[in-house]
Each structure stands twice: as structure tokens, then as C-alpha cells.
Design a protein around this nucleic acid. Structure first.
Lengths: 238, 238
DNA sequence: GCAAAAGTGTTCTTCATACACCCATGA
DNA sequence: TCATGGGTGTATGAAGAACACTTTTGC
């Protein structure tokens, strides 16, 4: 190490995605894992990742792996955190010249019902409930933690829920999403309802939909124009 | 470009610091800029930055440049955002082999009174009021913007103010810090005072201090133990 | 005594919380 | 007609905003 201090240090740069989704049927918060098919950590679960290619931005790379693993029409994606400590990838040691592996993690939220996992049974890819995530390759467990924290914050302070709901949705679908992500100590349905309607960016389409038994629910639509003035304001949906 | 698509892509990785401070005398929010002493962008203002060295983590590198530019005892520092788009550094073009320049930006808040700028008049280094920041090298203006947003959020939701105040401080010093960063549409002094005291993590030292004319102010101390249970809670100081 | 800075208290309104209750549908 | 999910209303207390007022100092 001491001998290499003067040498120019190069990096390999990868992108890893922490992709979250909510299964509305089971009310569970899920994260997408893939089985590693090469060394290091062959056969271990990990986040879907890739090395950044020529002419490609970090975000491009993030979208590329995402679309290689699942097909979705709607999603929210943003940069999460960058990990680059020495020793985070075992390949550093085996390389002849000084090299480090840096990974920029991205956070994504996708719609569960429309997400099509790519690859047949042979290729390991699966949704894992957040409280059953196994030990992952590299520092990917930390990425999942960071992502989970970001998800909760984003949901409270910004309208990412509407990037991931169908264009028309009922207020209980919206409530289920919030309650699943934010946990049990969340506002009750009737207060949530009153609060979010008062904010004024949900427009009633006057259409109704019946989900099994019970009174049919009104379908709402997110009104981006009405939301615009609230942007960057300390909105709290909780 | 097309020809190099199959080649392995290596990166140089740098760290750039957006270092903020508040001048209590002038009630101004400042950011630290340095004059570039080498190509590219020779002679242009920029954020203090460095390439990451062997065996050094990103955070190590961030602390290293920081301490090369200013001396402080107390500071708050955290990772901000990673920039790596193709074409962000002109050196990419001149290099013979495919190479990209990635920069991880860090956000720091330091105490103005104790910050000693390193370097004599020859080396360009200066505090700039945030609304007078000139056109900077690379994408550093975006880093300043990101940092400014982070500063406002952090101040509202976490106790970074106390990392940057003297151990003993008056409530108006605390108020000045908040008001300078968060702007004029901030809570008035008496409401701020009542609110923050009710939170219960400021302990009155019973000491008084006189700053010129007027009634002497009580000196308070941040009580980390009393604050601990409030950690991660949606604290809002505003 | 007066200005200046620190500190206290009061009023009014808005919002959060915890409920109870009514409505429309399927089985 | 009853269970089920959707939707409305209300009482209570806590929190926010605006502002008047008192206290303690220097000059």
C-alpha cells in the first residue's frame, strides 16, 4: 500500500439500484433482489447493478439495469448515496494495478401490479419483503437501509406516490400505500382523507369503482397543476 | 465514441466540498471558494476539491481538503451528491485512453468565528455571500445549489446548528443562525424561543453574558442526552 | 431616563387526534 | 339484512402566528 501511494488511482464505477414496491394484496413493502451470476459473491443475493458504460450518465446506467430486470411504465428514480471505501470489492486485491470500485446507489419506486420481472426461473430474481432481506453481496444491505429511509421521507414530503399509482385511484388505495410504507403509527383513514383532500391537488373524476363488497369508491386523479404551487413547500402528508 | 464502446471504462474520482458558514456580524450566509491554480479552468473560482488517494475513503478525502483550506475545531460534514455525466471535465477529451471524471460532492457547515483560512493573499481563497457567487469551474454552481438546499433542510430537521455554535451560546445567537439561513419568512424571536425551549434539550447554565447594550443574555448548552430520544423524529424547529 | 436587547405572556386561529356515525353495495 | 368497505362530521386539545408587554442592562 505504502509503495503505491504515489501511483495514479483509477476507479471502476458501478450503479446499484434499490428498487422498492408495495404489494397491495398483501400490504407488504418489497425490494427487488437478483442472484449474482459471477464472481465475486457468485450465487449470493444482491441489488441489481452494472458498471457504467461509455457515454452513459449514472442515471442512464440506473435506468438501463432497471429495464433489464423489470418492465414498468411508471416509476420514480433518484440518486441515493455513493459508496467507495477502500476494500468494498474483493476484486481490488486481485488486480495487478491499483484500482478501486465505487458504487453509486439509486433509489426507485415502481408499481407492483405492472412490474414484470424479466428472466425465467433459471435466473434468480425476486421481490423480498423488507423484513426478510437476507445477507447481501458487497455493502448492499446498507444500500437497502438507506433506500428505506429515503422512501419514508420522500413519501411524506413529496408526491412520489402518484408516480406509482394508476392514473385513476381511490383514496383507500392511496391510504394503503402510505400505511404500508409508513407503518402502523400512521394517521387513521378518515383524518388522512380529510387532510389530503384539503390540500386541493386531487380531483374527483366523478367515476366510481367497486372492489368486491362494500360501497363503490370514488376515483381520483393527481392534478399536477394544482400541486405546482405547493412544490418545495414543507408539505406533510402524514 | 462508438469505437470505444467495448473498451473498459476507468474513472478518476474526486471530492468537492461545498463549505458553508454564517457571518453573525453581517448576517450573511457564505460559501468557501478557491481560485483554481491549474488547468482546466485555471484562474477561475471553484469549490475546494481533490482527487481521492490510495487507501483513502471519500470522507477522508473530504476532510483532507477541508483541513488544507481552513482550520476549524467544530464542523458538520456529510455527503451531498455525485456528479459523473460524460463531458463534465474537459480532460476527458485530451486523454488518449477512455477516462471519465466523477466527483462526489460533500456538504459542510463550519463556525465562522473560528475558521482560519489557510494560505496568504497570493493563493486565492475567500468566503462569498451566497447571492454573489460567480460562475464557477466545472458543475460547481450546481453543487452550491444542492448544498444550499441541504443546509436549509438539515437546519430545520436536525441539530446541526449545535455543531457549529460555541459550546455556550445565547438564544439570540441561535436565532440569528436560523434566521440567516432560513430567510425572513421565519418564525419571530419570541415564538422560536418558546418552541425550542419546550423541546427540552437546551439547558440553562445560569450564566449571563452582556453583548454591548441591553439586558444580558442567558447562556445555554446543548444537552445531547436530552436530545437523544428526539433523534429521527420529525423535529421541526421552524 | 432612554434606547437596546432579553425574556414573558396573551389572544386568536388553525390543525391533529380520536372517535362516532351515515351511505352504498354484494352475498 | 347484514357484513363490508366508503365517506362525513364533531369535540377536544395542542400547536402556530401575531403581537403587546415587562425586565435588565449601557450610556
Amino acid at each position: 500500500m505504502a509503495a503505491s501511494l504515489g501511483l495514479p488511482l483509477n476507479f471502476k464505477v458501478g450503479v446499484d439500484n434499490a428498487i422498492f414496491s408495495v404489494d397491495p394484496a398483501q400490504n407488504r413493502l418489497l425490494v427487488l433482489l437478483v442472484m449474482r451470476e459471477s464472481e465475486p459473491f457468485l450465487g449470493q443475493w444482491s441489488l441489481p447493478g452494472t458498471l457504467v458504460r461509455h457515454g452513459e450518465s449514472l442515471e442512464d446506467a440506473a435506468y438501463r439495469i432497471l429495464s433489464e430486470k423489470i418492465q414498468v411504465q411508471n416509476l420514480y428514480l433518484e440518486q441515493l448515496y455513493t459508496f467507495a471505501g477502500p476494500g468494498r470489492d474483493p476484486r481490488e486485491l486481485s488486480d495487478s494495478q491499483p484500482l478501486r470500485y465505487l458504487s453509486v446507489s439509486y433509489f426507485a419506486l415502481v408499481r407492483f401490479e405492472e412490474a414484470q420481472l424479466m428472466g425465467t426461473g433459471v435466473r434468480g430474481i425476486a421481490w423480498y419483503p423488507l423484513d426478510e432481506v437476507p445477507h447481501l453481496a458487497f455493502d448492499h444491505n446498507r444500500m437497502v437501509e438507506y433506500g428505506h429511509r429515503r422512501l419514508r421521507n420522500k413519501l411524506e414530503y413529496s408526491p412520489i406516490a402518484f408516480d406509482v399509482l394508476p392514473e385513476l385511484f381511490t383514496l383507500s388505495e392511496l391510504y394503503q400505500l402510505y400505511a404500508t410504507v409508513l407503518g402502523e403509527n400512521f394517521s387513521d383513514y378518515s383524518n388522512f382523507r380529510a387532510k389530503i383532500l384539503k390540500l386541493g391537488f386531487l380531483s374527483d373524476t366523478k367515476m366510481k369503482v367497486s372492489r368486491g363488497a362494500g360501497r363503490p369508491a370514488a376515483l381520483y386523479r393527481f392534478d399536477a397543476e394544482a400541486f405546482a404551487p405547493l412544490k418545495d413547500k414543507p408539505l406533510v402528508f402524514i
